[in-house]
Design a protein around this nucleic acid. Structure first.
Lengths: 140, 140
DNA sequence: ATATTCTGTAACAAATATAGTTACAATATT
DNA sequence: AATATTGTAACTATATTTGTTACAGAATAT
């Protein structure tokens, strides 16, 4: 499985915006903290904007800002904003329906996949951007 | 995220071997059921062999066979056999330690990642190859 | 013995995903 | 008018996945 860093980037962005509060923050600044290219940050910001989590503005003193309160943003919201495929995959080609296993395996697998992914998402749902923000600001 | 089908293939293979019981089954036969190339099946079989789940034999009347009983093989065993990376990724580059967020975010993310992945694995651990085998054989 | 049936493995191709880079038009503020 | 910033396109490099062909070596069958 080749995973990506979008979720980590997204949480990073939202945490910085939560700390910045009502002051807009540009992608360059976040990119320096996340040690990546500003365009990468902007691409993730677009997904967060689509999901209704942030708003961006072009021009001087522009940048991104949270729309909702940090305590109302769960990590599941963030995950759903940046990831839209299941963590499990079925067969690339439909198995042979003439074989009893081939005929039934995908339904049986899907049952387990859905339950397992749900369990994972429940953990993400229990964590919020506020919690992460507080864990950081309380340290300093 | 680019997922793979190895886990689905692995469960498919083990289920067929569970049904075949003590009779060895060649990769060609399984490949026909899974609608893929025999080499793909053999590659997954190698992983299952390394994990101590099956044994293979070359030559005529060769093929693969289960080592343990289907009820002793959990889907977590299978998952661990074919997948060895986390479903989540941290930043590609270490974030800036001069930024409070950059300094702490990876530890905080890791905590959540570990818990979420564990929850998913607990679901996999509750399912066995025997259950899947029975769900199929009882149908026919 | 010889032929047959398998695995194990290498080498390669094609498709897709990811992260990163440069560049620039459009937009908003100073 | 100058400056800062997003949105977006085009491109590169790298890695992963699946699939393919090919073949040596091993085990069985005849």
């Amino acid at each position: 499985m080749k995973t990506n860093s979008r979720f980590a980037f997204a949480v990073h962005i939202l945490t910085m915006l939560a700390i910045s509060d009502s002051k807009r923050m540009p992608s360059d600044f976040i990119a320096e903290s996340a040690k990546t290219n500003p365009v990468i940050i902007r691409r993730v910001m677009l997904l967060l904007e689509k999901a209704g989590l942030i708003t961006s503005q072009t021009g001087a003193r522009g940048g991104a800002m949270l729309i909702c309160k940090p305590k109302d943003i769960t990590l599941l919201d963030v995950y759903n904003a940046v990831e839209n495929v299941s963590i499990f995959s079925l067969h690339p080609n439909m198995p042979n329906p003439k074989c009893p296993v081939g005929k039934n395996i995908q339904n049986l697998l899907s049952d387990v996949f859905i339950k397992a992914e749900l369990a994972m998402k429940e953990v993400l749902e229990a964590a919020t951007i506020e919690q992460i923000k507080l864990a950081i600001t309380k340290k300093t």
